[in-house]
Computed example of a mutant assay.
Amino acid sequence: MAEDAFTEHRALLFTIVYEILGSAADAEDVLQESYLRWSGVEPGSVEHPRAYLVRVVTRQALNHLRKVKARREEYVGTWLPEPIRTDPAVSEDAVLAESVSMALMLVLETLSPTERAVFVLHDVFGYTHGEVAASVGKTEVTVRQIAYRARRHVHARRRRFEPESEASREIVRRFLLATSEGEIQGLMDLMAPDVVQIADGGGKVFAARRPVTGHADVARFVLGVARTSITATTRIEHATYNGMPAARFLNDGELDWLVAFEIHDGKITGLYAMRNPDKLHRADAVRTLDRGEQRPWRP
């Protein structure tokens, strides 16, 4: 049945579309539209359902990304990908964990829509150039050129990444303790000198509209936010978002904001704070991600 095949591959399809779009809400819309297209296909007429579905969702995602690209350039403040709550087990696949990390997703945002889709399908999911060509509607020769250009662009800008671990979660716990105690030196000691703090308020709630850099400035900024945003009734929960250790801040039982931490060599190198309420509606549910087999199909 059409529904059975779509359900079987849904985690893979969601992962592909989310990495192309950077939005869980948009990814769900693309999957819904793709399912409607799939349900209209004559049963038994598709020899390789997964191959067909990957092609469908990729093309739908590309169409959607081209439409929203201009809106993102006019975004109020700094745009961050919509965070997705992930199982800590995602760190067992280092490639998958890095591919959904905030830092790499921001680099992917600087690619053209086609470059992004090609990089995601080829470098993250392991599809061949020929398979990618079938998904993006280009020749294999063209896809090879796009893949080379995209890879060079990404590698020149990507940050060093370490999957979440118990050690990184402990650093986050110490960071939150130092924040609650107002220990500016304690915070600075936990961060790399060139740490970067990025916040997304979407113009709807207070958030720094530009990145804050340097451990002294970030420490002061964090303590300032804590004084105004964390009260005696605020509940803080540890979680995993985008393959990174994170903290959830709840007021009156509702998720108010969250911060994902990028950690390398025992130091916090990046903080990604999501405060835009529009990007927190779906932040409670744990998402199942799947990179599939390394060689998923042969056209």
Rank of each mutant, 00 (worst) to 15 (best):
D4V: 13
T7P: 00
E8M: 10
H9D: 12
H9K: 08
R10E: 15
R10P: 00
R10H: 10
F14N: 04
I16M: 12
S23D: 12
A24S: 15
A24T: 04
A24M: 05
A25M: 03
D26T: 05
D26H: 11
A27G: 06
A27V: 09
E28F: 09
S39Q: 10
S39F: 11
V41F: 01
P43M: 05
S45Q: 10
P49N: 08
P49I: 08
V54Y: 02
R55E: 10
Q60F: 08
L65P: 02
L65K: 14
K67A: 11
V68R: 11
K69Y: 11
A70H: 06
W79A: 09
L80H: 07
L80N: 09
R85P: 01
V90E: 06
S91Q: 11
S91I: 01
E92M: 08
A94I: 07
A94N: 03
V95A: 12
A97Q: 10
E98L: 03
S99V: 07
S99R: 05
S101M: 03
M105W: 00
T110N: 10
T110A: 13
T110G: 12
P113G: 09
V118H: 06
D123Q: 15
V124H: 07
G126K: 11
Y127P: 00
T128L: 07
G130C: 04
A133V: 10
S135Q: 07
S135C: 15
V136S: 07
V136E: 02
G137R: 06
G137C: 08
E140D: 09
E140I: 06
V141D: 14
Y148I: 05
R149D: 11
A150D: 07
R151T: 15
R152V: 14
H153I: 01
A156G: 03
R157G: 01
R158F: 00
R158Y: 00
R160N: 08
F161R: 06
P163N: 09
E164S: 15
E170L: 11
R173K: 15
R173S: 14
L176E: 10
T179W: 02
L187H: 06
M188L: 02
L190D: 06
V195P: 03
Q197S: 14
Q197A: 13
Q197N: 07
I198S: 14
D200M: 12
G201L: 06
K204L: 15
F206D: 13
F206H: 11
R209T: 15
V212R: 02
T213E: 15
G214I: 12
H215D: 13
D217K: 12
V218L: 05
A219R: 04
A226K: 07
R227A: 14
S229H: 09
A232N: 06
A232I: 04
I236F: 00
T240A: 13
Y241I: 00
A246D: 05
A247Y: 03
A247C: 04
R248K: 11
E254Y: 07
W257E: 09
L258Y: 04
A260Y: 01
E262N: 07
I263W: 03
D265W: 02
A273S: 13
K279N: 11
R282E: 12
D284R: 15
V286H: 04
R287K: 15
T288Q: 15
E293I: 00
R295V: 14
R298V: 13
P299A: 14
P299G: 12
